[in-house]
Design a protein around this nucleic acid. Structure first.
Lengths: 342, 342
DNA sequence: TTGAAAGCGGTACCAG
DNA sequence: CTGGTACCGCTTTCAA
């Protein structure tokens, strides 16, 4: 039934109403009688009308487009990043929003560009690094930005992330409830506890909760300035030597690998000899040699929330800057069992 | 220097010229005196002017946006798809185009939507399946579509793909020049040679070129309706038994795995006992247990060409429907050597 | 070489 | 509940 590019006045004529009534009937911003609305709906579908995007952007206050900035660096873990991109675009569509993709150098450069040209209503920032250059950029533009992940300096930013304190408590509970009273925490490298924001919070919460429940928790870092296999294996060994029967790991994927390597080298098996829970992993834990119980940063909840915040940031009741946390969920994969009875 | 949202009239005022002169100075569609242009350029950068995207779309004939439809199915090989998305968006930016991402069900549904609303100037179709439903869709819309990959029914479509005939010849040359005169080809499943378009072309080209050069080439399929490990191993065995010292493989990744498994089971090593070249692989060959010489479908050349075709399809000299082929390149990885001298 | 002004196709205000 | 219409900011013809 459609021809070339139907315009609103054709719909109006077909339905025997005015242009404005068509507009209001479609946007719902003004009550329209049931009969009128029906005739308009019919005209719309018969003519295959779809409002012109440019005109809507110009006349209205919304572009119905979000920018999605994701560097997609070559070295990065593709499946993980793809799942976040996917989850974001699906969430956006549910709110009638399209996604404009900004990658590579455009991840940064594009932000200013699309903001200045009014191409997008908001910007969703993915794959956030601790010292992300997009932080500074987002402060120079008026377009609302939502970070999925928390950079070190997140003053004034709206960030979505896992509720790492709850996650720490959940992890402690998981092993404590199974009978472990001596727990080890293999964490980030040293610097992460000085400069970064939530590694210390997670660690503190773990300590506090363990104490609260009557467990003994001691923690080690996985390196100095950077995580290293050597430091991680040493840390793991120390914790085991100190009697830990359960390990919580809050670190990057290679650190998990190093922990498992050390246990393997000592002839310790998971979960028979040592139980493990990976906390707040943002990578795909299926890359690990052993399936681990994990409290992951999942794409869907984060992206859904980020999109919801983006939408709300366009209203007269925008979300406050700060961390918007996702309730943690533990995925059991069999790496936790009762401690050996010896 | 920038404030809220600079408009073209402010630039005009600052430069002491009319609005139209500013527009022309920026678009270059009308000669503007050097002096005037300089003053305008200065005003633009001082004010931080960036033309409003919506207004440009409405008034102009270009949106400066391409849709990129890529299902990004969960099961698909993420790194490969991501590299195509990346290459496309980079290529698009070089022509001042942004990418609107359509994934999952929007990969199809979104095409009609963005076309009808005039949101995009053209649509780039990625991850094309033999029976892709987006083929039919692209025929119902006026927005130019460029397929990166060739569906079975590509009548009237503009498709970008590897020049598989040249690729076949290149592969034959590679092993023939090394001294192999008995070559085996492990191909697609049977049906691909009946219904699909280029598997038979590739095979035919390989046979013709082998004959031309004086080599003996025999081919086997990797299954009936679907490739199977059993059929592939049988095919591989038959070719080896028939005396083949070099194998060309034109198939999916798992078929490559099956070929290697069969060779391994027979105690044959690559390239000492058997040479292998993977032809027209569209997957990441680094997932294979053995590094193989490969003539890949590379993202960059394909995406660059696709974007170029998209741009040209907006001119008064649009590209003809048909296959637009990329010259093949062989990447040597050490899986080809001279045949054993026995 | 430059300027004035008519649209582009909606949105939303002001009336009725 | 509905209609008329003044914009939204830029592109592009028409005139000068």
């Amino acid at each position: 039934m459609e021809s070339e590019m139907v315009k609103i006045d054709e719909v109006a004529k077909a339905a025997g109403v005015s242009i404005s009534t068509v507009s209001y009937a479609l946007s719902g911003k003004r009550p329209v009688s049931a009969g009128t609305r029906a005739r308009i709906q019919q005209a719309v579908s018969e003519l295959g009308y779809s409002p012109n995007a440019g005109a809507r952007m110009l006349a209205g206050s919304r572009t119905h487009i979000f920018a999605l900035t994701e560097p997609l660096r070559k070295d990065s873990h593709a499946p993980t990043h793809m799942s976040f991109v996917l989850a974001t675009s699906v969430a956006a569509r549910r709110h009638d929003y399209d996604i404009l993709l900004l990658t590579e150098e455009q991840a940064s450069a594009g932000m200013g560009r699309v903001a200045a040209s009014g191409l997008v209503d908001a910007i969703l920032v993915l794959d956030v690094a601790p010292d992300d250059e997009r932080v500074a950029l987002s402060r120079t533009i008026e377009t609302p930005s939502i970070f999925i992940g928390v950079p070190d300096d997140h003053e004034g930013l709206i960030c979505v992330d896992l509720d790492f304190e709850s996650a720490a408590e959940l992890a402690v509970d998981r092993v404590f409830d199974e009978g472990h009273t001596r727990i080890g925490l293999v964490g980030q490298p040293e610097v992460a506890y000085e400069k970064s924001n939530f590694p210390p919070r997670l660690r503190r919460a773990a300590h506090a909760h363990a104490e609260r429940r009557g467990a003994e928790l001691s923690s080690r870092t996985s390196g100095g300035r950077l995580s290293s296999v050597a430091a991680t294996r040493r840390a793991t060994g120390e914790l085991i030597d100190a009697g830990a029967t359960a390990l919580l790991v809050h670190a990057a994927d290679d650190v998990h690998g190093a922990v498992l390597a050390e246990l393997d080298a000592r002839g310790l098996r998971v979960p028979d000899d040592v139980s493990i829970v990976s906390v707040a992993a943002s990578f795909d834990t299926s890359v690990l040699p052993v399936a681990l119980d994990v409290i992951p940063l999942q794409p869907e909840p984060s992206c859904d929330l980020a999109v919801a915040l983006a939408i709300r940031s366009l209203t007269d009741d925008p979300p406050r800057p700060g961390l918007h946390l996702i309730a943690p969920t533990l995925i059991a994969r069999g790496s936790v069992a009762a401690p050996r009875g010896d």
